[in-house]
């Protein structure tokens, strides 16, 4: 999915290629996603992040098809700016606001997997600690206390920022996200958003391969959906 201002689309294609999928770029002015098994909204600055991050992109022509696809139970994944778009579109709860320290953060962070029931974490084990690069200015996840309680009850929190040993603490929270939340999913688990960039952690030479398991979850989840009676 390419909005004007998206910039991680080639990186996501590179990473999905590496794990053996057949990704194609779809421009935001398209309206049809027939034939695709899953959608990834990559990172970047769709529409310059002007007004509010993701606010203008959610009105792009393609978003109708994305919403329809989400309703079928197929994987719809938002990474970084894509996560922000999915929140603005109401496909995921909560919102993302400016980092606690009001500065852009580009560095690897540790994430603890909280559930393996989503389209991004099927291939990961609950409690597993991953090292994935974070790269955002508006990565600070916020939601009302009631929403957080509902999400926790429904097992919708995918990953939380932690230290290398998996401990969740304020010190391990890079951007002020409530409950150290770095990724969430909808009730069905097929729509998932993640602030750090798994596509930047797919080769040893880039410093980490911890993103592979997350990306491999997408086809695995799609297969689960397809084989469901």
């Amino acid at each position: 999915m390419v909005f004007p201002g998206t910039n991680c689309e080639h990186d996501v294609v590179h990473a999905l290629d590496l794990i053996g999928l057949q990704p194609e770029l779809v421009f935001h002015k398209e309206t049809d996603l027939t034939g695709f098994d899953a959608v990834v909204l990559p990172g970047g600055f769709a529409h310059g992040d002007y007004l509010r991050t993701g606010a203008i992109a959610r009105f792009s022509p393609i978003m109708g098809a994305v919403t329809a696809m989400a309703a079928t139970g197929a994987p719809v994944i938002g990474i970084c700016n894509g996560f922000q778009v999915l929140c603005e579109a109401g496909l995921l709860p909560g919102a993302l606001v400016a980092n606690r320290d009001l500065a852009f953060i580009c560095r690897p962070v540790h994430l603890r997997v909280e559930t393996s029931r989503s389209a991004l974490t099927t291939g990961a084990a609950s409690g597993e600690v991953l090292r994935i690069p974070l790269n955002s200015y508006e990565g600070n996840y916020v939601a009302s206390p009631e929403t957080i309680r509902e999400m926790e009850a429904a097992d919708q929190i995918l990953v939380r920022y932690c230290d290398a040993s998996g401990t969740i603490s304020d010190a391990a929270n890079p951007n002020g996200s409530i409950g150290n939340i770095a990724g969430v999913c909808n009730a069905a688990g097929n729509v998932a958003g993640l602030m750090p960039h798994p596509e930047r952690a797919v080769e040893t030479v880039l410093g980490s391969t911890d993103g592979i398991g997350l990306l491999r979850s997408i086809p695995a989840f799609a297969d689960l959906v397809a084989t469901r009676p």
């Binding site: 990186d11 990473a15 852009f104 953060i105 580009c106 080769e203 030479v205 880039l206």
Partner: peptide, 14 residues
């Protein structure tokens, strides 16, 4: 300084 810069985009940075 450089943690405020995206220094990884394009997956070329070794």
């Amino acid at each position: 300084i450089y943690q405020q810069y995206d220094h990884q985009l394009f997956l070329n940075t070794i």
